[in-house]
Write a protein that binds this DNA or RNA. Structure first.
Length: 457
DNA sequence: TGAAATGTTGGGGCG
DNA sequence: ACGCCCCAACATTTC
């Protein structure tokens, strides 16, 4: 009996329900990845690079089991039935995902293939964490309480006596940038081990921008080189820091569950009354934001970090997101698309969930009147300016006080630091206090058109 | 997982 | 000793 395991966002063999089931049920297994060229070119350079690195890592794991990873280029809807036919497979396994695109695609495939769909990308699958009424909570804290109390299933494990199908091995696209990401699940476990040395300090350090206080595991969770429930299990609950981090995994599950239930939230406000907001059309402002030229050092630092590395510190994601939506009054969907293009860890459910949180349009989101002051936040979370100087080097000569807000620094001090506003660093593209009033007015007008019903579509 | 505006309190300088 | 003012520090309200 020959089974196919279709890998997607679960690029690992450990704690992988689809892989475990196939190796238990079949004598021979074909490990398949289908590279949809359209999806690949939609990804920014860093995500392309990471995908190739992780596919090579998965191939290495499979070689140790005597086989190879098979990579096919094309649309899964046509490729998968072809491969199943070619290898004579009786059954296909994969781990399901919650994005509308994947749900539609997988449902279509499930109608024409003998298959089993597993869950391997979340701690708890959609539907496993419900209120007493049997619904998905619209508020995070009760969701979290139930999530935390929900027991994890027994973990399936792969059996060793299966033959992994050989084939020429993956023909992988060349990537534009040299591979700097260590691919594969073993490298991912080393990164997890690295985080375990820091996790007890997580709550105290995660918001400090100049130190590595976060897990830095988001991309491994995105590609599935780490199993989220294995991570949750290893981190455990012994200390505040550990519980604080695991709580973040609950946010991740919650956003996935929400998108599974509300596929339209990719383009519509989860609170429909906020669809009435009249956004500004400001291509120049959007461009300045994208390229880190807003004149607000903390915003520019974050946007440059994103472009340079495919990563951005979570707090800075909130600040840059708030700046686009609240200060520039630009539609959150534009920012969501830009982030999704560039982020290594880009995932429709997480990205959309977080952007709707920032914009105040989601469930249990930041209230619309919560407007981050970029300068205040910068002083608070990067007091010594280490993060700013790293990503906005033209301001590096300013002292710790001035570096957060060059626009109000005395001309002599600017000159001494080699800063020429409007020349080598921009003037602020917007006045924050004016922008704050403007966005509060715009949101209030939207709510006046469509009074708050408190309901999700 | 805010911040600004407004209100309250109390210490200290000063006449 | 007293009233007055200033203002930092904190609390509350508001968006």
């Amino acid at each position: 009996m020959h089974h196919v395991v279709w890998f997607r966002r679960d690029l690992r063999l450990g704690d992988n329900p689809a892989w475990a089931a196939a190796t238990q049920q079949a004598d021979e297994v074909t490990a398949l990845f289908v590279l949809d060229p359209a999806l690949f070119t939609n990804a920014g350079p860093h995500r392309q690079e990471a995908l190739v690195a992780h596919l090579r890592g998965l191939d290495t794991e499979l070689r140790e089991r005597g086989g190879r990873l098979r990579v096919e280029h094309g649309k899964p809807l046509t490729v998968l039935p072809q491969i199943v036919d070619e290898v004579g497979a009786g059954h296909v396994h994969w781990n399901r995902d919650t994005t509308p695109y994947s749900v539609t695609r997988d449902d279509a495939l499930a109608r024409q293939l003998s298959c089993t769909q597993h869950w391997g990308t979340l701690v708890h699958e959609p539907g496993a964490v419900l209120t007493q009424k049997g619904t998905l909570s619209k508020v995070f804290t009760p969701f979290y309480n139930t999530w935390y109390a929900t027991a994890m299933h027994a973990w399936p494990t792969e059996t060793g006596d299966v033959t992994v199908a050989a084939n020429p091995g993956p023909g992988l696209p060349d990537v534009a940038t040299p591979l700097s990401i260590e691919g594969g699940e073993q490298a991912a476990h080393r990164r997890l081990g690295d985080f375990m040395n820091r996790v007890d300090n997580y709550l105290g350090q995660r918001d400090l921008l100049a130190v590595v206080g976060t897990s830095m595991l988001s991309a491994d969770l995105r590609f599935g080189t780490l199993s989220p429930r294995e991570v949750a299990d290893i981190v455990g609950e012994q200390t505040e820091g550990r519980r604080g981090f695991v709580r973040q995994l609950a946010w991740r599950d919650w956003y996935a569950h929400l998108l599974y239930q509300h596929p339209t939230m990719t383009s519509q406000a989860l609170k429909p009354q906020y669809n009435e907001i009249v956004w500004r059309d400001d291509p120049a402002g959007f461009d300045a934001w994208k390229h880190g030229q807003t004149g607000f050092p903390i915003i520019d630092a974050g946007m440059r970090e994103l472009a340079a590395t495919g990563y951005m510190h979570n707090r800075v994601r909130m600040l840059t997101g708030s700046f686009l939506v609240k200060d520039l009054l630009i539609d959150w969907r534009l920012g969501e698309r830009w982030f999704r293009h560039l982020l290594l860890d880009a995932d429709m459910s997480q990205n959309v969930g977080n952007w709707q949180w920032v914009a105040g349009t989601g469930t249990d989101a930041a209230p619309y009147f919560r407007v981050f002051n970029p300068t205040t936040q910068s002083r608070k979370f990067d007091p010594a300016g280490g993060y700013l100087r790293r990503w906005v080097p033209e301001l590096a000569g300013l002292d710790d006080k001035a570096v957060h807000e060059p626009s109000i620094v005395a001309p002599l001090e600017l000159a001494a630091a080699g800063v020429v506003l409007g020349d080598n660093y921009p003037h602020p593209i917007v006045d924050h206090s004016m922008a704050r009033e403007r966005v509060l007015t715009a949101y209030k007008q939207a709510l006046a058109i469509a009074p708050d019903s408190g309901d999700v579509q």
